[in-house]
Amino acid sequence: LNLKQAKEEAIKELVDAGIAEKYIKLIANAKTVEGVWTLKDEILTFTV
Rank of each mutant, 00 (worst) to 15 (best):
L1N: 12
L1C: 12
L1F: 10
L1M: 13
L1D: 12
N2W: 08
N2S: 13
L3M: 03
K4Y: 08
K4C: 10
Q5W: 08
Q5Y: 07
Q5A: 10
A6H: 04
A6Q: 04
A6C: 06
K7V: 07
E8N: 08
E8W: 08
E9M: 14
A10I: 04
A10W: 02
A10M: 03
I11K: 05
I11W: 05
I11G: 02
K12V: 04
E13Y: 07
L14S: 00
L14C: 05
L14N: 00
V15M: 14
V15Y: 11
D16H: 13
D16G: 11
D16Q: 14
D16F: 12
D16R: 14
A17R: 11
A17E: 04
A17D: 02
A17G: 04
G18C: 06
G18A: 04
I19Y: 08
I19E: 01
I19M: 06
A20Y: 04
A20T: 07
E21I: 09
E21Q: 08
E21T: 09
E21A: 09
K22H: 14
K22A: 08
K22V: 11
K22L: 07
Y23A: 03
I24S: 03
I24T: 06
L26T: 04
L26D: 04
L26I: 06
L26R: 06
I27N: 00
A28T: 09
N29C: 12
N29R: 09
N29K: 11
A30T: 04
A30M: 10
K31N: 08
T32Y: 03
V33W: 03
V33D: 01
V33A: 04
V33S: 03
V33G: 01
V36D: 00
V36G: 00
W37S: 09
W37T: 12
T38C: 15
T38G: 09
T38S: 11
L39V: 06
L39I: 10
L39S: 03
K40S: 04
K40I: 10
K40F: 15
K40C: 08
D41K: 09
D41R: 09
D41G: 07
D41H: 11
I43M: 05
I43C: 02
I43T: 01
L44F: 07
L44Y: 06
L44P: 01
L44K: 04
L44D: 02
L44G: 02
T45E: 13
F46N: 15
F46W: 13
F46D: 08
T47A: 15
V48I: 12
V48A: 14
V48W: 06
